[in-house]
Design a protein around this nucleic acid. Structure first.
Ligand SMILES: [Mn+2]
Ligand SMILES: [Mn+2]
Ligand SMILES: [Zn+2]
Ligand SMILES: [Zn+2]
Lengths: 144, 144
DNA sequence: TGACGGATGAGAATAATTCTCATCTAATAG
DNA sequence: CTATTAGATGAGAATTATTCTCATCCGTCA
C-alpha cells in the first residue's frame, strides 16, 4: 500500500479513501475480478461508494500502470470461421488480430506440473505488440 | 459452403438464407469481426436482416462448433494488481483464471519470422482446459 | 487553515447483448 | 407440387456493461 501511495504521488493523483480501498481490494483478490465484483468489495468499507467511481478509478489505475487488464480481448465478441489450429498476433493499440499457424510455434513446455485438478486441453499463444500501422512513427507536423 | 450445409443438416438446423450469408461473411473475413461488423456485411446481401438474427445465429453456430470465438475473455473487464510477469490457466466453462508464473513456462520459439511490420513485445500463454470444479464428474442421480 | 483542482455520488446516456412475440419459411410428408 | 409445422425471422423492448454530466466535496499544498 505504501507503494500505491508513492505511485499516486508520482502520477499527481490525489490518494483518496476510495482509491485506497479499491486498490487494496484488488491487491487482496486472487480471482481476477471485474468492476461489479470490485464494487461489491469496496462497498463493504465505503457503503456510499458509487459504481461510477469504481469504473473511473479502474481506468485511472490502468492508464497509470498501477494495475493490469487480464486480457486484450475484453469487450465485444470476435469471431472466425477458420477452424485450423492457430494462434494470433494481437496489436495492443488497435487490437487488430492476425493468424499465426500453430505449426509455426514450437510446442510449449512447462518446468513444473500444473496445479492438481486442472485438466489441460491446449495451450494458446498470443504474440502481443504493435501492428505495422500502430508502430509507424508519428508523421512530423500536423497530426491530421 | 457445402460443408456448412452438411453441418447444418447434421445438427438439424434449417439452412436459411440468413445463415448462409452470415456464414459466408465469416468465411471470407480475415479480420476476426464482431457482431456489428458482420451485421453490416450481411446487410449488403439482405438489407432487411435484423441485428437480433445475427446475434442469434452467431450463438447457434458457436454452440454447434461451426465457428469459433477468438478468445475466452470477451465480456466484462477483468483486473489484477499482480504485476509480476505471469500467464494464466483459464477454465473454458466457468472462465475462472489462475496464475501461472512466467518462469514455469519455457521460452517460446518460432520456426519462422513473424510477418514483416509487426513489432513483437511479448508472448502471452494461456493454458485452456477445465478447472477442478468443472472437470468433476457429474454427481449420479439428482442434479440439484 | 484556506484556496482550488481534481474526485465523488447520483443518475442519465450510450453500447453490447438478450429476450419476446407475432409472423414467416425450410423441411418433409402426402 | 401443396399442406403442415417446428423452428427462424424482424421489430423493438429489456437487460447488462460502461461512460458521461454536473453539482458538491475533499486532498493537497501554500
Ligand atoms: Mn484466427
Ligand atoms: Mn493473473
Ligand atoms: Zn495496431
Ligand atoms: Zn471451471
Amino acid at each position: 500500500m505504501q507503494w500505491f501511495r508513492d505511485r499516486c504521488a508520482e502520477a499527481g493523483l490525489p490518494c483518496t479513501h476510495q482509491r485506497q480501498v479499491l486498490y487494496r481490494a484488488l491487491l487482496e483478490a486472487k480471482d481476477h475480478p471485474g468492476p461489479e465484483m470490485l464494487y461489491e468489495r469496496v462497498k463493504r468499507d465505503i457503503p456510499s461508494v458509487s459504481l461510477g467511481t469504481v469504473y473511473r478509478n479502474i481506468k485511472t489505475f490502468l492508464d497509470n500502470g498501477l494495475i493490469g487488464e487480464v486480457s486484450l480481448h475484453h469487450g465485444p465478441l470476435r469471431l472466425e470461421a477458420n477452424n485450423t489450429p492457430h494462434h494470433h498476433l494481437v496489436c495492443r493499440v488497435c487490437r487488430k488480430m492476425f493468424d499465426l499457424p500453430a505449426e509455426q510455434v514450437e510446442s510449449i513446455h512447462l518446468r513444473e506440473a500444473l496445479p492438481k485438478g486442472f485438466h489441460l486441453e491446449r495451450f494458446v499463444v498470443e504474440a502481443h505488440g504493435l501492428c505495422a500501422g500502430c508502430a509507424a512513427p508519428k508523421r512530423t507536423g500536423r497530426t491530421h
